[in-house]
């Protein structure tokens, strides 16, 4: 638990304020995920919940395994938090309306649109961005296949497609080309590099993800 929530004493949604505000102080160290806290919560009649904002509040996120804490207003989306506050610019801001897929990140392993989620809503979840695909001088096999098959042109959509495809293979290493294409149905490439992406994903399917 402790790794997924801000440490006590910080402004914003700290553990201390969180517990006090929800009348769950007695539940102490366990916060909301334990059955004890759940039972407590259901017994409390309309407990007073503390609000956060509209001024900037502390927000700690777990991005690519690292805990990063920033001060943001509640309205800041996960995408803007990553790009503007954490300097993690792999996810791209293209439509900003949950339509194009360029901002795709994995949240607890599932592809989501970072532009259409508040950063505060991603607290306590594991966030993976394209930056996680290059480690120890080694490029992950999905972006490597994109490079090999020249599956990009302007490149703005590419990080989103790569994350959606990685999420697909993570869930099902034996996905067929059709299944992988279904997983890419929430992403758009305006340059039209679909054929090269097909070549890339077929090469990955042959290798069993």
């Amino acid at each position: 638990m402790s790794e997924t929530h801000p440490p006590p004493g910080k402004p914003g949604i700290s553990r201390r304020q969180f517990l006090t505000g929800t009348g769950l102080g007695a539940a102490a160290t366990t916060l909301l995920q334990t059955s004890e806290a759940r039972t407590q919560a259901s017994k409390v009649q309309a407990p007073k919940t503390v609000g956060f904002g509209p001024n900037a509040v502390a927000c700690e996120l777990v991005v690519n395994g690292a805990r990063i804490s920033v001060q943001i207003e509640p309205r800041v989306t996960l995408l803007d938090c990553l790009r503007h506050y954490m300097d993690i610019t792999g996810p791209k801001r293209v439509c900003d309306r949950g339509t194009c897929g360029a901002c795709t990140v994995l949240l607890d392993g599932r592809p989501i649109y970072a532009c259409t989620m508040l950063a505060l809503e991603a607290q306590g979840k594991k966030i993976e961005t394209p930056e996680s695909l290059y480690q120890d001088g080694q490029l992950h096999r999905v972006p490597a296949a994109f490079a090999q098959y020249d599956a990009q042109q302007c490149g703005f959509c590419t990080p989103g497609f790569v994350m959606a495809m990685k999420g697909c293979f993570d869930r099902n290493p034996n996905a067929t080309p059709d299944e992988v294409e279904q997983c890419l149905a929430g992403n758009i490439c305006r340059c039209g590099t679909y054929q090269q992406m097909r070549d890339a994903l077929r090469s990955l399917c042959k290798k069993g993800g």
Partner: peptide, 12 residues
Amino acid sequence: NFTYYRPLSLEA
């Protein structure tokens, strides 16, 4: 901008 609330129960 707005104030953000994170209740832990439906009643809250």
